[in-house]
């Protein structure tokens, strides 16, 4: 809605192209849609919650008002799916950290690369658009 890019799907010419939208606009409606995922991820600010989650992920998910799709996306670590279901990267990154995954790993997921490929691309100056 806000940016022209927001509504456009990601590259579509290849079967391997990531499903991620070009740019996510985290607006109020998205925030409402993704609130349960974000709330779950926000809870990882407490060490105690991180341990609870790791010891029984399914049970931990039960504490939050997740849709089945959202629960699935969390348990499967479907990073694109979580964003498509309204989550914000600032929250889902906390889940990635629980998994000891880096932002380069996530960047790779969003763009169909390995963590190493994505990291090298950043070192070589990042990705240019427009």
């Amino acid at each position: 809605m806000a940016t022209p890019a927001a509504a456009e799907p990601g590259g579509s010419s290849s079967r391997d192209a990531p499903r991620a939208r070009d740019t996510y606009v985290f607006d109020i409606a998205e925030g409402r849609r993704g609130a349960a995922i974000n709330r779950l991820c926000a809870s990882f600010k407490d060490e105690h919650n991180r341990r609870d989650f790791l010891s029984d992920e399914e049970a931990y998910c039960g504490r939050f008002d997740l849709t089945d799709e959202q629960r699935r996306a969390i348990l499967d670590r479907d990073w694109v799916g979580m964003l498509d279901l309204g989550a914000s990267i600032f929250y889902t990154f906390k889940l990635a950290q629980v998994d000891k995954r880096s932002m380069q790993y996530l960047g790779g997921v969003f763009t169909g690369m390995t963590e190493e490929e994505f990291g090298s691309l950043m070192v070589s100056g990042g990705r240019r658009f427009g």
Binding site: A5, G10, L83, G107, F110, L121, M122, G126
Partner: peptide, 15 residues
């Protein structure tokens, strides 16, 4: 400065 963490444009840098 320029950066984008998520989406197909992740890794964007606009020098």
């Amino acid at each position: 400065m320029s950066h984008q963490l998520a989406g197909a444009r992740a890794g964007l840098i606009n020098t």
